[in-house]
Design a protein around this nucleic acid. Structure first.
Length: 273
DNA sequence: AACGATGAGTGAATGAAGGC
DNA sequence: GCCTTCATTCACTCATCGTT
């Protein structure tokens, strides 16, 4: 609401602005109907490639398509990019035809719409999970000490006993005060291949078998359900009154990309600003 | 310093479905 | 039929970062 301290005094709220738009366009109507490409872009970002430059992907994809190139001759990177382009075409009805009859400028516009969807979905999921994750990590019938506000990112990360333990790289001992101090102070840098223990089943890491239980934690399952089925499907009988994202987009199985997406989102919810 | 692009975060609109 | 709840999407503001 307008209690947002960042909002300048006297400036209209977004709701007020929308209300004025509604007056121009009639009651209970969105100012503009959204291009379906944005809708499909949302799922593309979640299930195929999160941090994708769609414009580059589409431009390069069209270029390769025009050349009728032998995929075996491509580099691994190009081959992967090309397969993602095909995934995009497959999940977006009419996209291929639309691209084929579009000018260069229109192709860029189309890519922007898909990008807008992907970025928007990411922002929405970040927002939704930020508060939900507090419920998932709080033991039943207990409260976290110190308390972590549901809608504030500050106070998480290594600053908090509980989130710090979950973020602690597998193989390190969060119980060791020296290790903990180095993590909190930032003196100990964590490399990209040091997985946090929150990704492991039962938060348990086996140094003899680092792949055992990786990406199988209950936290990731909850996050996956939250995003792809519905928030209410996480830890109770779902009481959703409409289809979740998976059904809307015809998603029948977990993909590597969707797992990576969920993992990224979960990590983000634990990090401070 | 000014500017633009981008991302994070917010509140509200919309639509679907169930309950009464 | 109306009301309520829930999931999803949208428009918006503000902060941050890179470039000029």
């Amino acid at each position: 609401m307008s209690s947002d301290p960042r909002r300048q005094a006297g400036s209209p709220t977004s709701g007020q602005k929308r209300a004025s738009n509604a007056l121009e366009l009639g009651p209970r109507k969105r100012p503009m109907t959204q291009d379906p490409l944005v809708h499909h872009g949302r799922h593309f970002g979640r299930a195929v490639h999160t941090f994708c430059n769609v414009q580059t992907l589409v431009t390069n994809g069209l270029s390769l398509m025009g050349e009728d190139v032998d995929e075996a001759s491509l580099t691994a990177h190009k081959r992967k990019e090309y397969s993602m382009f095909h995934a995009l075409l497959k999940m977006t009805p009419g996209l291929e035809a639309r691209l084929m009859e579009s000018s260069e400028e229109e192709v860029i516009h189309i890519a922007d719409l898909i990008q807008k969807g992907a970025n928007g979905a990411r922002a929405d999921d970040t927002k939704g999970m930020k508060s939900a994750v507090i419920d998932w990590i709080t033991p039943k019938g207990q409260i976290l000490n110190p308390h972590i506000p549901r809608n504030v990112k500050a106070g998480r990360g290594f600053n908090h006993e509980h989130t710090g333990a979950l973020l602690c790289p597998a193989g390190l001992d969060w119980g060791n005060s020296e290790t903990r101090a180095k993590l909190v102070s930032g003196q100990m840098q964590i490399s990209g291949d040091q997985w946090p223990v929150l990704l492991y089943a039962n938060y348990s890491y086996d140094p003899e078998d680092p792949w055992n239980g990786l990406l199988r934690s209950g936290l990731l399952v909850s996050a996956f359900k939250h995003i792809f089925t519905s928030p209410s499907s996480v830890d109770q009988e779902p009481h959703a009154t409409r289809s979740g994202n998976a059904r809307i987009h015809g998603m029948h199985s977990v993909t590597k990309a969707s797992t990576a997406y969920v993992t990224t989102q979960v990590n983000l919810t634990f990090c401070t600003l």
